[in-house]
Structures are given as C-alpha cells and as structure tokens.
Design a protein around this nucleic acid. Structure first.
Lengths: 209, 209
DNA sequence: TTCTGTGAACGGATTCACAGCA
DNA sequence: TGCTGTGAATCCGTTCACAGAA
C-alpha cells in the first residue's frame, strides 16, 4: 500500500469515480467489479486489482458499496477539498477555459490569470483581472496555488512552464502543443486534440469507407 | 511491417512529427534518435524501435534526415491529405472548437455542425449553418466524412456516438465526460481536462507545499 | 453461491547491447 | 568513430485462477 502505485492505475481512478457518481445518481447502492467493468470496457480483475492498491473496499459475495467507494476515492485522489489554479494565457483558448464551469463544479478554481500581452493586462474576465506575466512569480509566492494551466502559444510554453515550476507549482495542465519535459516530481498532463486526431488517421488512411 | 503496430507506438508518431516540424523550422537537416529523444524525454532506443516498425529511415553514423522523416510520417499517419470532420453539439464548447483554427491548419476541416436544440438549428457559425441532429444520418450518408467530434452534454453522448458509428464514422474525438465504449474497429480519443486534473491531485494531496 | 482480494502466470512494451554500415 | 536497426533480455501492467469471506 505504501509501495509505488503505477501511474496508469492512478489515471483510471477518476474514471471509476465519475462512473460511480453517475451510478449513485441512478440510485444504485452496490456495484460489482463485473458491472462497473461492463460500463467502462475494463476487465473486472483490473478494477479489483486497481482498488486493492489502496485498501479492501469491497464485500465478498456482494460487491462495492457505491457511496462508500466514492468517499474512498475522494480521499485517495484528494477531491475532498478545493484546489486553486492559476491560468497563464488569456487568448481565445484561455478565455474559453475561464468561461468553462466544469472545473469549478469539481472543486478546481481559477484564482488568477496572466498574460504577457499589455493589451490583455488589466482587462477583467468574469471576476478575474488579467495580470502581467512579469508579476507571476510574486503573485504565486503570495497565493501559492498548486496547479497551473498553460494556454499560451507553443513557443512561449517552455518558459512559462519553467517559471511555474520555479514558483513551486507541482502540477501542470498543458494546452500548448509542445512536448515539454516536466522535472521529476512535477505532474504534467497534455491536452492536445490535434495529436489525438493525427493518431486516429493512421487507422483510417487506407480503409475504403 | 504488415504485423500489428502497437497503439502506443502510433500515438507517439504525431509527437515525433510535430517535433520534427519544429526542428525543420529551425533549419535542422539531420537529427539523431539521441537528440530527438532529448527534446521529448524519450529514450533513443524507443524512437529507433518505433520508427523501425515502418521502415529504415535513418543513416548509420548520421541519423535521420529531418525533411525525409517528416514526409514518411505524413504518409504513415495519413497527414498528406485533407480530412473532413463533423461536429455534434454547438454549445459553448462546440463553438470554441469551431472558432479554433488549429484543426484546419493541420488539414482537419469541420464541414458540418449539428445540434438537437431547435434554438441552435439554422444559426450560422462562421461559414457553417447548424443542422438539426435528426438529419445527421442523412447528411452523413451524402458527405461521408470519416471523423466525428462529440461536444454534447455527457448524457447525450452515448446515443450520438452510436449514431455516428452507425453512419460509418470510424474515428471519434470525444469531449463529453463519459467513458463510452467504441465498437471494434472504431477509434476514439477522449479529451477530458477534469480527469487530467483529478489524476494529478493524487500526487499533490499530501505533500506540504 | 457469489464476488472480493491477490499471488502467479502471462503478454506486451521498453530497454539493452551489439552487429553492421557510413 | 558514430549512430542505426534489431534480436534478446528485462520490466511492468494485465489477466488468470483460486482461496476465503459473506
């Protein structure tokens, strides 16, 4: 249990969590690894093994209590609290991110927004006033959020990421289309729909539709 | 070469592609697996093995000719042509997608947009007029695009995905926060920033910042 | 009987290490 | 000498299969 949990396992937990929330909403009280696996296209054995890294949450012969498992996952993933995010880059993409309420609904709150463009700085977007990126490190030191969102053009991303890391940010959601290496101990996830499309076309390219 | 190429390998090819384009832009003519791996945080051996699934593109003692390798990857991935996409769901997210020019720049063109909301239907967004989702299958039959983008609320997604698949769509970029099982032979990639955040908080949760 | 939890077996992806070519 | 291409070795995640609890 103290032993290293594989990253792939951690990545699946939010999927379980989301599905369990949906099941709870449907009034389901108990679910077996079989059923859960059916919804997700994952083998029951994998679900059981994944969960077993963190404890023994099920009842033999019955399955998992939905509400109880949700609570465990909230604790494991740290979803039982609010998280502050800073956003860097308030171009079209950055604004779309600020306008999206799906983050806040899950406890992720953007508390500061930055840009390097003087035209942007000072503008208000919703409740936030865009700050100059030059003040990034000062602001980060005072509010010390844990998570950063990068929504700047690709060429600017590496520098922004370095700055965030230097200021103590340990998790980065990167929308910029670059493969930036996060240093050891810093989590980074890339959101890149173009890469997703480009890997799918491989499978389409010589099929005759 | 006819043998099955692992999916993970295919997923990395667009990353190589993108990086090579950047290197070409910097005037670089030859690159070794060593260098490329350094930029990407991938071992040189992995890059060489990945590429070896598709042919022998390098020169011993030298490395890979950047332009030549780019051309090979374009062919392998099917990026040497234009791809038509249909978008389902023109809410905030769908509009953001339509307003994004990064797809078209890479040869991915949204040629039709659908929604089930009568308020939306008929509206023009850029060059596209939103169509009623009821006509989805007819339209798909006439224009037969290969790729669909799903940007509808989670509860609607499974049905939309089924319809797309029934109409011959073989690749789906899914922005809806649901784990939908695509049938055999249908590629699907999920874009879900919330899941990404929720997996990162696991690593943050008990570190003292 | 049913379904969990888990060691063992398996399989697939990554890395190693080296032959061979420039 | 430098770097590719690739079988072999290794590592690691998934699946199997079964003991044990409800």
């Amino acid at each position: 249990m103290v032993l290293e949990v594989p990253q792939v396992v951690v990545n699946r937990l939010p999927i379980y969590y989301r599905t369990l929330i949906a099941l709870e909403g449907q009034g389901k009280e108990v679910v077996s690894s079989q059923e859960l696996g059916f919804f997700l296209g994952i083998t029951p054995a994998q679900i059981r093994k994944d969960l077993s890294y963190f404890g023994r949450f099920g009842k033999q012969g019955r399955g998992y209590n939905v509400r109880r498992l949700i609570e465990h996952l909230r604790g494991i993933l740290g979803l039982d609290r609010q998280w502050s995010l800073v956003l860097v880059g308030v171009g079209k993409l950055g604004r779309a991110i600020l306008g999206y309420n799906g983050f806040a609904r899950q406890g992720f709150n953007v508390v500061a927004a930055f840009d390097k463009d003087p035209e942007m700085v000072g503008q208000c977007i919703g409740p936030l006033q865009v700050q100059d990126i030059a003040g990034l490190s000062d602001t980060l030191r005072s509010i010390s959020p844990r998570i950063g969102i990068v929504a700047v053009p690709a060429p600017d991303a590496p520098e922004v990421i370095d700055t965030l890391v230097a200021c103590g940010i340990r998790a980065i959601l990167n929308y910029a289309p670059v493969e930036a290496k996060a240093p050891e101990g810093v989590q980074m996830r890339n959101i890149d729909p173009v890469l997703a499309l480009q890997s799918m076309t491989y499978y389409l390219k010589d099929r005759v539709s």
